[in-house]
Design a protein around this nucleic acid. Structure first.
Length: 420
RNA sequence: GGAGGAGUGGCCGAGUGGUUGAAGGCGGCGGUCUUGAAAACCGCUGUGCCGGAAACGGUACCGGGGGUUCGAAUCCCUCCUCCUCCGCCA
């Protein structure tokens, strides 16, 4: 969310400058409606003041005072209704207005305006036709798409043997680097969350269709970002507790509504996948540097696994709803002959903190202010597994295991089939 | 899931329809005193919103929401959370 006083001043400018981002939020009538609400509130409070004066008299009020109070009651009720209605309309708009991109974010209508910041490693040159993981995996007996469909449905996959073990190894490897080397605190949160939590990070109300919901009203988390960021919802943190760095492994659940036909083959886009996430809560003045650090932390994982990747700065047309600036890490996938998103590292500034009311107090007696939140994938297990299978494949259909991962796979150096 | 109990300010804890943002205490901040500190004493000590350049003024908030009333922390309904006991269970 953006502050009301900010929208009051900037609604028209945002609409004019970035129609690709702010065009559909209903900002056109915002300023006018805000004026209406404040007029109503001012009148309302004058009447309540009068009522309070009258009811401050001890004992049973005089008949004429009683008359006035009865009249006031009706007027107050009418004004309350007017103010409430205006407030609700404003609030509904505020909940779906996206965050304001930082000045350094490339301007453009969609992902074609994204800017490649840097690349690392070179795509492997194969002396044989490279296979996609949806051919490699089943041939090795470690990925089973048909049985995933049988057990649950489309966009579910069953992993066997080396693939299952490698998933477990990747989770361990990612967490170890974050915790032992990069200073994060490990968290194991609930995989279901309530509506307040999903509102706090920005998935609700606008993206309800992307979530799985239980009959009891819980939501399956689409990312660990939700429970971990909300850890400090409705809290005021002392400044010396910041920055807070968290990392968490969770399963993630996404309905992928609106993704029909996209990435239907293989396990690139699943309803359920495992992911290690990193989350930071920092002082506002530190968030720009924190985004660079967080991005570098996740790049480090790809470097250790020796997977070629590039870093892309998302344009205003591609930037996520809550983000002020995002770097996507894209890993090279030989099977697609393209770079594919594997991590999204974002600075949300105060956008989520405002929704979730996460504040800091710099010193005793000072006003609380909103923290800045950031997060990034570090990394998703499924897509990393896919990247390893495709980049480390050999002519005979076997797959080498990255050196960094071998200690996590009891020294295993290659995958030749599901039987270990 | 069943039965019972409880939710008040940073914390403890009064308050059962009328000057209650809310007694009292603790903690915190400022001051007096002191060479310094402690003790003692005095004062201050929440958040949102509206108005205001500001000082400040107003208004709302006693777990959340709704209702009764001229007036609600106090009465009614509902939801949530916590505690105790029973049941079930990894």
């Amino acid at each position: 969310m953006l502050p009301r006083e900010y929208l009051r001043e900037n609604a028209q400018r945002l609409l004019a400058e970035m129609p690709e981002r702010f065009g559909k939020a209903g900002l056109e009538t915002y300023v006018e409606l805000d004026r209406e609400r404040r007029d109503a509130v001012t009148k309302l409070e004058q009447m309540r003041r009068r009522r309070n004066e009258l009811s401050a008299i001890k004992g049973t009020p005089a008949p004429e005072a009683l008359e006035e109070m009865k009249a006031l009651k009706e007027e107050i009720r009418a004004l309350e209704e007017r103010a409430e209605q205006a407030d609700q309309t404003l609030a509904a708009v505020e909940k779906i207005v996206p965050n304001v991109p930082q000045a350094s974010v490339p301007r453009g209508k969609d992902e074609t305006a994204n800017v490649v910041e840097r690349s690392w490693g070179a795509p492997p040159q194969f002396a044989f036709p490279a296979q996609a993981h949806w051919d490699l995996g089943p041939a090795l007996g470690i990925l089973d798409f048909e049985r995933g469909v049988k057990l649950a449905g489309a966009r579910f996959t069953v992993l066997f043997g080396a693939a299952a073990r490698m998933s477990r190894a990747l989770i361990q490897f990612f967490l170890d680097v974050h915790v032992d080397e990069q200073g994060y605190t490990e968290v194991l949160p609930p995989f279901l969350a309530n509506a307040d939590s999903l509102f706090g990070t920005g998935q609700l109300p606008k993206f309800a269709a992307d979530l799985f919901q239980t009959t009891e009203g819980y939501y399956l988390i689409p990312t660990a970002e939700v429970p971990v960021t909300n850890l400090h919802r409705d809290e005021i943190l002392p400044a010396d507790k910041l920055p807070l760095l968290y990392t968490a492994y969770t399963s993630c659940f996404r309905s992928e509504a609106g993704a029909a036909g996209r990435d239907t083959r293989g396990m690139i886009r699943q309803h359920q996948f495992d992911k290690v996430e990193v989350v930071m809560l920092v002082r506002p003045e530190d968030s720009a540097a924190a985004l660079e650090a967080l991005t570098a932390h996740n790049e480090e994982l790809l470097r250790r696994l020796e997977l070629p990747y590039r870093v892309v700065s998302l344009s205003t047309g591609d930037l996520g709803f809550a983000s002020a600036k995002t770097y996507d890490l894209e890993v090279w996938l030989p099977g697609m002959n393209a770079y594919k998103e594997i991590s999204s590292c974002s600075n949300f500034e105060a956008f989520q903190a405002r929704r979730a009311s996460i504040r800091l107090r710099r010193a005793e007696g000072e006003k609380p202010e909103f923290v800045h939140t950031l997060n990034g994938s570090g990394l998703p297990v499924g897509r990393t597994l896919v990247a390893i299978l495709e980049n480390y494949q050999r002519a005979d259909g076997s797959v080498a295991i990255p050196k960094a991962l071998q200690p996590y796979m009891r020294g295993l150096k290659e995958i030749v089939g599901s039987g270990l």
